[in-house]
Nucleic acid binder design. Structure first.
Length: 597
RNA sequence: GGCCCGAUAGUUCAACGGAUAGAACGGAAGUUUCCUAAACUUUAAAUCGUGGUUCGAUUCCACGUCGGGCUACCA
């Protein structure tokens, strides 16, 4: 379907060629939806055209407007304010536009690009449970994946579990020292939380040792390196790398606990992955690329054996890619995994959902991959998102101000339950249905709250205020959907038949209905815009606009009382399409819409 | 120090270089004989500063101020 904007661009270009004998590229013409305060459907900005017409903005606008009305049957009227040409379509046109939208079951889904994209997100450490920061990452990653899919791409959702390294050894050590024998089953503590407790216990132990050493006269820096527990943890890591059976067994057991815990959290969030990578299996990747880099002269080997990539010419630093002992660093591994993924899946691009504290890392990664000669280097995209802050400032695990993911999800559920029970509308629902509904609402509130914010911006999360169900929130959209469903149910009870085949033309949609149709028609543009910007926030705000528009429309349009059957059917059809579009848009955000609430 | 990012009503968020900068929460005042008041209506309230480019700048550029991040042979 041709959007009205494209239609106007095309016709206006014809007008210009006819009026001024100048050919212009239609796509350069600026057309937008007319602002509410002015009369019109779409507005053409004429200022840039003055160099063609060589007259005043008003004269130019009026000339184009008159030509359009005279030559384009779909355009009925126009008015020109300053340099803005407001164009009105005939109501027949809106009927046709709406019929096309209604007939398209997949409205908003963009045509296939034939491209395959991998989206990596979440990528947790296995030494602590997920927290609020991970939630932003997970929700962004999940919705961007859905968004890219709606944009016509094949999407592979991937995560890289950080299951090895000295931090895991710290938890293992603390378990041996303080938690021996305790398991998630024996304690009733969720696995990831139990391991997190071990990590905290290690930190406590370590700090005490450092303090002891300092009290006996050692300086802080040395003490931090010499603390026996830290040395033990490093020894454990060496044993792990040598495949020491005992260490490996403990490691496997504790990781299993964590994975089980994570699975529960992911399930509660409604998130899953197509591909799970484990760092313990991929951390050696990339070493062969070091040799390639040396051969190509991209890397240099220092006398001590370490290998570096000199990026000073690009305004960055020298970056190490191989330690002097021959072991690899994070960058090496990322170079290797990127290369193997592009090769294995024949990817067109790769999106990394990682916090903005790693902007530098990804800048370097792209640069080095480019220098190594990979043509896809420029097609890796770092979806960099800002920190989530609390009213009292940054989350700090040491200060206990971290908002735990499981706690938060539970809190949202409880709040949804309390609000629902207060309204008392759902007394006939079964406990299972209610439970599902509370979860849907609580999660909808959380997801919308996080996703509606532009990813790159630091956002503030106030646990008290974020659990708000009024205003620009997920539950508002969910509530709107439930009300539309209620209207449609009522209509069905009254025996009103409606459906795509019932659409009749020759109706005069009201001004508010035209606004709804216009807004609906914008959906594919919004999807395209969101895909281009990797920003589900665009869709979130659009879904809210739709819901708000419905509330304002329905407030003073007595749909169910309409006597004119054709008009009644048209309006119900409009609501049906509206509900469908709401479901589709929130689907991109991973938010479910209930039929009752 | 160097590099990157951000700054919009009291608060949390919007605004392809376009008209009188939009919402929501909170404040003030109202609305329930179509669906479900988790709604709707009215109202007060903001672009960090100084220059520049432009017919036009919240948006682009420069400088400054403030805030955040990065700057490990950690991941």
């Amino acid at each position: 379907m041709k959007t009205p904007e494209l239609f106007i661009q095309e016709k206006a270009a014809q007008a210009l060629s006819s009026l001024y004998g100048q050919t212009v590229d239609p796509s350069t013409l600026q057309v937008g939806v007319t602002r509410k305060e002015f009369e019109g459907d779409y507005t053409l900005v004429v200022f840039p055209l003055l160099r063609l017409s060589r007259t005043s903005p008003e004269a130019t606008g009026n000339a184009i407007g008159e030509w359009l009305v005279a030559n384009v049957p779909e355009i009925s009227r126009f008015n020109c304010v300053k340099g803005f040409l407001n164009i009105l379509f005939s109501s027949v046109y809106w009927d046709e536009v709406f019929a096309l939208i209604a007939a398209d079951e997949d409205f908003g889904r963009l045509p296939s690009t034939g491209k395959r994209v991998m989206v990596e997100f979440s990528s947790p450490n296995t030494n602590k449970p997920l927290h609020l920061g991970h939630i932003r990452n997970n929700l962004l990653g999940d919705s961007v994946s859905r968004l890219l899919k709606a944009g016509g791409n094949e999407v592979i959702k991937a995560t890289l579990v950080n299951d090895r390294g000295v931090h895991i050894c710290k938890s293992m050590l603390a378990w041996q020292k303080c938690f021996e024998g305790k398991t998630p089953e024996s304690t009733g503590i969720k696995g990831d939380h139990l391991v997190g407790d071990c990590y905290v216990a290690f930190d406590k132990l370590y700090k005490a040792e450092v303090k002891n050493l300092m009290d006996s006269g050692m300086d802080e820096e040395t003490a931090k390196k010499e603390a026996p527990s830290l040395k033990e943890a490093h020894e454990m890591l060496v044993k792990w790398e040598r495949n020491d059976p005992e260490v490996r067994e403990l490691w496997a057991m504790m990781n299993e606990w964590v994975f089980k815990g994570f699975d529960e959290t992911y399930k509660a969030l409604g998130i899953d992955f197509d591909k799970v990578y484990y760092e313990s299996r991929t951390y050696l990747l990339g070493k062969d690329l070091v040799q390639k880099g040396l051969d190509k002269g991209v890397f240099v080997r220092d006398p001590d054996g370490s290998v570096w990539c000199d990026l000073t010419a690009d305004g960055l630093d020298r970056k190490i890619v191989l330690r002097s002992d021959g072991t690899s660093v994070y960058m090496t591994q990322d170079l290797g995994t990127a290369a193997s993924r592009f090769e294995e899946y024949d990817l067109d691009s790769h999106v990394y959902v990682v916090g903005n504290e790693q902007d530098y890392h990804f800048q370097v990664l792209k640069l080095i991959l480019g220098k190594l000669g990979f043509d896809w280097a420029e097609r890796i995209y770092h979806l960099s998102y800002g920190m989530v802050e609390l009213p009292e400032g940054k989350m700090k695990s040491r200060e206990g101000t971290v908002v735990d993911a499981d706690d938060l999800i539970q809190k949202m559920y409880d709040e949804a339950k309390a609000t629902s029970e207060e309204s008392g509308k759902l007394s006939d629902m079964s406990e299972e249905e209610k439970d599902r509904l509370y979860h849907m609402i609580g999660l909808g509130a959380l997801k919308y709250f996080i996703i509606k914010v532009d990813p790159k911006k630091t956002m503030l999360f106030d646990p008290k205020e974020s659990i708000d169900f009024n205003g620009n929130t997920g539950p508002f959209i969910q509530y709107t959907h439930a009300r539309i469903c209620s209207i449609l149910r009522k209509a069905a009870q009254q025996g009103v038949g409606f459906g795509p085949s019932d659409i009749t033309t020759d109706l005069e949609p009201s001004a508010k209905e035209v606004r709804l149709i216009k807004l609906l028609g914008l959906y594919p543009d919004k999807v395209a815009e969101a895909v281009a910007a990797f920003s589900p926030a665009v869709i979130a705000n659009y879904a809210y606009d739709l819901a708000k528009e419905f509330n304002q429309y329905y407030h003073d349009t007595p749909v169910l009382r309409e006597e004119n059957q054709a008009l009644l059917k048209f309006r119900l059809e409009l609501l049906l399409v509206l509900a469908r579009t709401l479901v589709s848009a929130t689907g991109i955000l991973g938010i479910e819409l209930p039929e009752r609430m």
